[in-house]
Write a protein that binds this DNA or RNA. Structure first.
Lengths: 337, 337
DNA sequence: TTGTACGCGTTATCAA
DNA sequence: TTGATAACGCGTACAA
């Protein structure tokens, strides 16, 4: 019943009574063959249940129609949503997506990049623009198109798709200032190797100073990106010399973790303290109080990244970076000082 | 400075002063060559910055060292966590992971499967065991190793990795019965093409009947998997002929959505109604009240799936399915009737 | 243990 | 427009 051997293109050509070259063209460039040969080839494909061998195709054409992405982690909802959008658009453009995660280890990231290049990825999507020192060289010598997503500056000569993190920090603080807050604390993820976190912090601090407010180092907390960081963050905030009335977080996950700890410890938000997040992941709307946060168009970043990556594959010189806008989603976790 | 052409294996062999065959072996089976040839090859690789061409390797070896997975969506935290674990373990075993999502459309799923096969994936990971009628034929004729994750029965002849959904439904209900509840409602995702949802519902209903309780069709709600379904679900529950004191959800997302709507509408949980979820996604602990839910070892499913898939690639006949245990995470969303 | 030579299945070039 | 043929870069029997 079943054919023992998988049909090859030559089998299709034979059955269709055309040359193997014509069969190939019929499948890849249908407009470039006569209608009847196209029909016969298509018919033969149907009858044989022919499925092209992408591996051989990739070798001969030097294009795998695959792009690789290296993320910190897929578990963070913000990257999950990003990958979903990226994958969807890539699929629409005829590309597959290989995902890899380094869990915040840039040595691992470097290895993963090497692996993806070796694997034949046509392009790479990285997060941010600060990476292992050797990664840049690697990408250059491999001459692989790369885009820095979630970034607001190029990574080397590679274009980016992202938004102004600094602005994000600013609008969060302005909102809080408008509510009458004067004593702030900042909770961010690790800042080394993460220019986005640093930019957000800068936006926060500079807005504060513009209003004559200080944010001494003692008011700045740096914790791993995870909900469970909330506990330690809560304790640290409680022990601050000057008790803040507002906590500006550079990540939704961190904000949510803090609020969870606060609820457990009986600190009322926003009555006793206002909290803002960054990213606008879906669950921010579900918690009580709902999280006021800097809204980032995650899907748009994913979609634009996909389009740019495909453009870059077609024309490696086409590096026109794109930026998206952020704004503030005002919900219930912030209130008057 | 830069080499214009990328070095090939023959260049490595030349520089190392060995044959191309030896160079190949040195890289793939280091134990099978003399130490000094190995050293010379490695040295040449270093000096040339040689990166193997995975495409050519795949064509010659008929192994791409890539597995593909087709999910409903990566946005659902439960699949995001799954992919993260799957990818991590696969990477540890030397495999890349291509992700694709069909967003609950089995025609799309079929096309994606075809694409992954064409692409040369060594194996496929699917979710559940009910798919497009033609998918089974496709997998058979392509002879591609496949595992059904999140499933408790084989998909055709393909092994599964999952848990007893029915048991999950049972333990949720038993907990509620123990709290004195007698009037139940069920909220599930779409049941067509989703044997897991049906099994969970069965587990719920049969446990109810075992205790002499009915759950008329009027008490069963079916909504799309999404937090926003919570609003419609809330309204539907309010209009039920017999007001339930407990809502058993077959998905955390749905439970969370319902609780969000309930909070907005002033329905107090668990005082006026108890709610249980299914899956135990991380955010269930953050909402207030924290969600009582059937805990599923998501990471374990991902890890075991990865191991099984690699095993299956090595030995396609090795189909030994694996199941994991579920239990109940009792938190604050359930209370006395 | 090492080297030779062929095969993997397709695309691309070029002549007809 | 079509057909023959040379790459594509590596794995792998088989022979030495």
């Amino acid at each position: 019943m079943e054919k023992k051997k998988k049909p090859r293109l030559s089998d299709v050509a034979l059955l269709a009574g055309v040359s193997i070259g014509s069969a190939s063209k019929a499948l890849s460039e249908p407009d470039k063959v006569r209608p009847d040969t196209l029909a016969r080839v298509k018919d033969a494909v149907q009858r044989l249940g022919y499925i092209a061998d992408g591996t051989a195709r990739a070798l001969a054409s030097r294009r795998s129609r695959t792009v690789g992405t290296i993320l910190p982690t897929i578990s963070n909802p913000i990257y999950a949503a990003f990958v979903q959008a990226l994958q969807k658009q890539l699929a629409a453009l005829g590309y597959h997506l290989i995902v890899a995660s380094h869990e915040y280890d840039d040595e691992v990231e470097l290895d993963l990049a090497r692996g993806l290049i070796e694997r034949g990825a046509d392009a790479l999507v990285l997060i941010g623009s600060e990476h292992h020192p050797r990664l840049s060289h690697l990408l250059d010598s491999a001459e692989i198109p790369t885009v820095a997503a979630w970034s607001y500056s190029p990574f080397g000569a590679h274009p980016f798709v992202g938004f102004n993190d600094r602005t994000g920090g600013q609008i969060a603080v302005r909102h809080l200032l408008g509510l009458g807050h004067r004593r702030f604390a900042i909770l961010s993820g690790p800042t080394t190797g993460n220019e986005r976190q640093r930019a957000r912090i800068s936006g926060i601090i500079e807005t504060l100073s513009a209003h004559g407010l200080e944010c001494p180092p003692d008011c700045r907390l740096e914790m791993p990106f995870s909900i469970s960081s909330g506990d330690a963050a809560f304790r640290a905030v409680q022990q601050m010399a000057v008790a803040p009335t507002a906590l500006v977080c550079c990540s939704d996950l961190l904000a949510l973790g803090f609020m969870s700890a606060a609820a457990r410890e009986g600190l009322r938000i926003p009555d006793q303290m206002s909290v803002t997040g960054f990213g606008d992941i879906e669950i921010g709307k579900l918690v009580h109080p709902a999280l006021t946060t800097v809204r980032v168009p995650i899907e748009e970043i994913g979609t634009k990244t996909a389009s740019m990556v495909v453009e870059l594959i077609a024309n490696p010189a086409a590096g026109t970076s794109a930026d998206v806008e952020v704004d503030l989603a005002i919900r219930a976790s912030t209130g008057p000082a």
